[in-house]
Design a binder for these strands. Structure first.
Lengths: 284, 284
DNA sequence: AAATATTTGTAATTTTACTACATTTGTAGT
DNA sequence: ACTACAAATGTAGTAAAATTACAAATATTT
C-alpha cells in the first residue's frame, strides 16, 4: 500500500511528536526523501530517535527503508492524499490541498467501482425507452450534468429538481424505463420514497450511492462509490466529483456500445453548437 | 527517466568493474535496493568506491541517492496520463481510462491555477453584496453546484439557466455585486453579451474560462484553467471537473476568510439537513 | 619497454542511523 | 493534591554506512 496514504490514514495513532513528523513529510515528501534523519528531525522540531520510531511504526525497517518506501510512493504517480484544510492555510496551501484531495478521492473511487455493474448498467441504459435522473441538493447538479450528456445521445432523458415532479414522473413510469437516483449518503427520505414509487411501477431503478444505504435497498441495481468525504468544511466535495466521473464512464460506455456511426452523430451535435460561438483564430 | 533503462543503455560506457556492478543490479534490482554499498560491492566482486563511482556515473549524488532512483523505477508506477478511449475498449478499460484521464486533467489544472488570482477572487467574493453564477450547457450544472455551495454561506447568490433572465439580472446589477461567468471555451456569444452587460452596469465581472478567449476580455478578473480536454467523444468532461474543483477552492477560501465562528454556522446548516434523512446506525 | 593515463582498491574520515538510557510529561488512584 | 506508574521524548554514546584521499595495479600510447 502507498505509504503516503498510510501516513494520513494512521494519523490518529501517532503521538504528538510523530504527528509533527508526519505533517512535515506530507507537506513536502520530495524534500523528505532527500533529507537525512537529522535534517528531517530538525525540520519537524523533534529528536532523531523520534523520527526513527515514526518509521518503525509504519512497519519499515528504519529510516533508510522508510525513504525507499516513500520514494516508491512518489514514483507511483499518486502523491495525492486526502489532506485536510486547516484554518491557517493560505491560498496556495488550500488550493493544492483541495486539488490533491480530489485526485486522491478519485483514485479511491476508481478502485471501488464494480466494473461488472458498470457494464450491466450501460446495457440497461442502451436499451432504455426513457432515462430519468433524480437527485437533491448537491446531487441535483450531478443529475443536471448527466442530462446534458445523455441528451446528446438523442435518447429521451428527463430530470426534475422538484420533488413533486419527481414523484409524478415516477408514478407514470413503466417497464423498460430506467430511473437513476443519485445521492452520496443514500439517506434522504424523500428520494427513497420516490425510488420506491418508481420501483412499484416497474421501472428499472438504479442507484449511484453508498452501499447498504436505505436508497440502495430501494434499487434494482446499485453502483456504489466509496469516497473518503472531507467533512471538515461540511460540504459535499469529493463525492460529487466521483459521481460526475462515474456519469462520464456510463456515457462513454453508452457511446461505445452504440458504435462508430453513433459517434458521427455526436460530432454533429457538437458542430451545431458551433454557430452559437465566436470562431477561433486557430483552426479546430 | 527510468534508471534501470538508463543502466542498460549506458552499459557501453561502463568500465569492466562497473559492468559487473550493473549486471548484479539488473539481475536482481529488488535485492540491490535493500543492500548496503558494502554488500553490493561484495556481490559484484568489486570495492565499495567502485560502486560509488558507478552511481555517480549515472548522475546521482551517491549510493543512497541511487537507491532512491532505483526504488522509484521499480515502483513501476504508471503516472496518470490522458489515455484516450478507443472503440475496442471493454468496461474495465474505459472505466480506468476515464478516471485516470480525469485525474491527469486535475493535475494539469492544479498547476495552471493562478494562486494570487484565487486569493483576489476570494477577497471579492467575501465583500460582494450579491453573487451570481452564469453558464450555459455543461457549465450550467457547474453554476448550479456553485449556488448550492455558496447558498450555505448565507450570502445572496443567484443563478439562472435562462438567457433572458441572465440578461435582466445583469441589467440590474450594480457596484459591489459580483458576477461569475463559467465557460470552458469562453466563446459562447450570448454569454459574452451578458458579461458585457454586467460590466457596463458596474458589476465586478469574473470569468472562469480559457485565457485570451472573448469571454475573458469581457471580464475584470479571469481565473483561467488550462485543461487537456478529451475531444474524442465530443463531450465536455475533464474541463467541467476542473471547474467544479476550482469552485470548491473558492468556497473553501471563502469559509477560511470568514473565520471559525462562521464555520460553526456551516455545521448548523448541515445539521438542519439531518432531519430530512434516515438516521445512521452508527453515531455520527 | 618506458611513460602516461586510467581504473581499481585500501584505509582513513566523515556522515548517518541506531541503541541504551535518562528525563520529561502525562495519567490514574489514593 | 500528591504519589506511583506508564508513556513519550530527548541525550549521548555506539555502530554502521558512505565517501574521500591516496596508493597500487592495470591498460594504453609512443
Amino acid at each position: 500500500m502507498n505509504i503516503l496514504e498510510k501516513i494520513s490514514l494512521d494519523m490518529a495513532e501517532f503521538s504528538k511528536s510523530e504527528k509533527k513528523v508526519a505533517e512535515v513529510i506530507l507537506a513536502n515528501p520530495q524534500v523528505a526523501i532527500h533529507s537525512s534523519i537529522a535534517a528531517l528531525a530538525k525540520m519537524s522540531n523533534v529528536s532523531e530517535p523520534t523520527v526513527n520510531r515514526f518509521c518503525r511504526r509504519l512497519d519499515t525497517k528504519g529510516y533508510p527503508d522508510f525513504k525507499l518506501h516513500l520514494a516508491q510512493s512518489l514514483a507511483n504517480g499518486t502523491p495525492y492524499v486526502n489532506r485536510h484544510v486547516d484554518e491557517f492555510d493560505g491560498p496556495s496551501e488550500y488550493t493544492n490541498k483541495i486539488f490533491e484531495s480530489t485526485m486522491a478521492a478519485l483514485e479511491v473511487a476508481r478502485q471501488s467501482v464494480d466494473i461488472a455493474m458498470v457494464n450491466r448498467v450501460v446495457d440497461l441504459l442502451t436499451q432504455a425507452k426513457k432515462i430519468s435522473f433524480f437527485g437533491l441538493g448537491a446531487s441535483a447538479s450531478v443529475c443536471h450534468d448527466a442530462v446534458n450528456k445523455f441528451f446528446r445521445f438523442n435518447v429521451p432523458v428527463v430530470h426534475f429538481d422538484d420533488i413533486l415532479m419527481q414523484r409524478m414522473s415516477c408514478m407514470n413510469s413503466r417497464e423498460g424505463e430506467v430511473v437513476i437516483f443519485i445521492s452520496h449518503t443514500g439517506r434522504t427520505k424523500s428520494l427513497v420514497d420516490v425510488a420506491n414509487i418508481a420501483r412499484e411501477n416497474d421501472a428499472t431503478v438504479i442507484g449511484i450511492t453508498t452501499e447498504g444505504s436505505p436508497l440502495s435497498k430501494a434499487c434494482n441495481y446499485v453502483l456504489s462509490l466509496s469516497v473518503p468525504e472531507d467533512t471538515d468544511l461540511y460540504m459535499p466535495m469529493a463525492s460529487r466529483i466521483a459521481q460526475l466521473t462515474l456519469i462520464d464512464v456510463l456515457a462513454t460506455g453508452f457511446t461505445l456500445r452504440r458504435g462508430n456511426k453513433f459517434r458521427e452523430n455526436l460530432k454533429r451535435v457538437k458542430d451545431t453548437l458551433r454557430n452559437s460561438r465566436f470562431n477561433r483564430q486557430e483552426n479546430n
